[in-house]
C-alpha cells in the first residue's frame, strides 16, 4: 500500500463535524480548556461547520445550556449549528426550551444522552420527544453504545432499541451517535441501519476502525455515514485519520466528511 501524506490528503476535503460539544466533560482531566481553542482546532483541521451540543445541557442544566449557547453564538457566529438537549426526566421543560429557541439559533436538532437519564431508548418517557421530532421533521442525535461494556449505564443507550421506537415512529430521523461505540458491535448496528432508512451513523468515540466506512458503503449504500469527533472528549485528529485511512475513494470520503451531514441537517435552510 502506498504511503499517504496525511497533511496533503486532508487538504482535499472540507468537513462538517456532525458531533461535537463545547464545555468540559465530567471529571475529566483537561490541562487547559477553552471554547476558543476547541473552535481553533476545528478550523485548523478544515471543519467548516460544527454541529454542537453543550455539555451543560447533557448534564441536565437546560437553562445553563441556553446561556452558554447564546454566549458562544456571539463569539463563533454561524460556524456552529446547535443541538438542544432533551432530558427524559425534564420532558416538558426540554420541549418548551427547544420550541422557544430553535428559531433563534442555527438549530440542527435535538440531542439525547440516555445514560444520564437512566432511561432506555425505547422507554415511553421518550415518546413526547419522538412525537415532537417526527411531526416537525427534526433530526434527533442519540448517544448510542454497546450494552456489552464495563459501564452498566450504557445499556440504556443500546441502538438496537430503535427497532421498537421506529415501529411507532417510522418517519423519525435519528443520527446514531457513536454507532454503538464498539468495533465488535458495529455489525449489528449496520444491519439495523440497513433495515431502517431514517437512521444514520457516526463513528465518533474511542474506537478507530477505518474499514467500517467501506462496510457501510457495501452493506447499506451511500449517504448514511457522517463524520463526527466528540470534541473535546476526543481530539479531532484521531477521527480525521480514521476516515483518511479508510479504503474508500475520495468521493465517498467527501460524502462522509461533508455531503451526508449537509444533506441530513439541511444546512442553510431555515429550520
Amino acid at each position: 500500500m502506498p504511503k499517504m501524506n496525511v497533511e496533503e490528503e486532508l487538504k482535499k476535503f472540507k468537513i462538517i463535524d456532525s458531533h461535537m460539544h463545547l464545555g468540559i466533560a465530567a471529571n475529566t482531566l483537561y490541562y487547559k480548556y477553552s471554547d476558543e481553542r476547541v473552535m481553533e482546532l476545528q478550523k485548523t483541521f478544515n471543519v467548516e461547520t460544527s454541529i454542537c451540543s453543550h455539555i451543560m445541557g447533557i448534564f441536565g442544566d437546560l437553562d445553563g445550556q441556553i446561556e452558554k449557547i447564546l454566549e458562544a453564538r456571539k463569539k463563533f457566529g454561524s460556524s456552529i449549528f446547535w443541538q438542544l438537549v432533551y432530558v427524559a426526566e425534564q420532558s416538558d421543560k426540554s420541549l418548551k426550551i427547544i420550541e422557544k429557541y430553535r428559531k433563534d439559533i442555527n438549530f440542527a436538532g435535538i440531542k439525547i444522552w440516555p445514560p444520564g437519564s437512566e432511561t432506555y431508548i425505547d422507554s415511553r418517557k421518550y415518546y413526547p420527544l419522538w412525537e415532537y421530532a417526527s411531526s416537525k421533521q427534526i433530526v434527533v442525535a442519540a448517544h448510542t453504545w454497546s450494552p456489552y461494556t464495563e459501564n452498566p449505564k450504557q445499556k440504556y443507550s443500546n441502538p438496537l432499541l430503535f427497532k421498537n421506537v421506529l415501529k411507532n415512529f417510522p418517519n423519525l430521523k435519528v443520527l446514531l451517535v457513536h454507532s454503538g461505540g464498539k468495533t465488535d458491535f458495529y455489525d449489528e448496528v449496520i444491519d439495523l441501519v440497513k433495515d431502517h432508512e431514517t437512521l444514520y451513523m457516526d463513528f465518533s468515540g474511542d474506537c478507530f476502525y477505518p474499514p467500517v466506512f467501506k462496510k457501510v458503503l457495501n452493506r447499506v449504500g451511500r449517504g448514511r455515514s457522517l463524520f463526527g469527533t466528540d470534541m473535546p472528549m476526543m481530539d479531532i485528529r484521531y477521527h480525521i485519520s480514521n476516515v483518511l485511512l479508510s479504503d474508500i475513494d475520495d468521493s465517498a470520503k467527501a460524502d462522509v466528511f461533508y455531503n451526508n451531514a449537509a444533506e441530513l441537517f439541511k444546512l442553510g435552510e431555515v429550520n
Partner: peptide, 14 residues
C-alpha cells in the same frame, strides 16, 4: 488501534 491513527496524531501535533 490501527498504526496510522497514532502516527498521524504525532504528524498533526501542534
Amino acid at each position: 488501534i490501527p498504526m496510522g491513527i497514532n502516527t498521524n496524531r504525532i504528524i498533526f501535533a501542534q
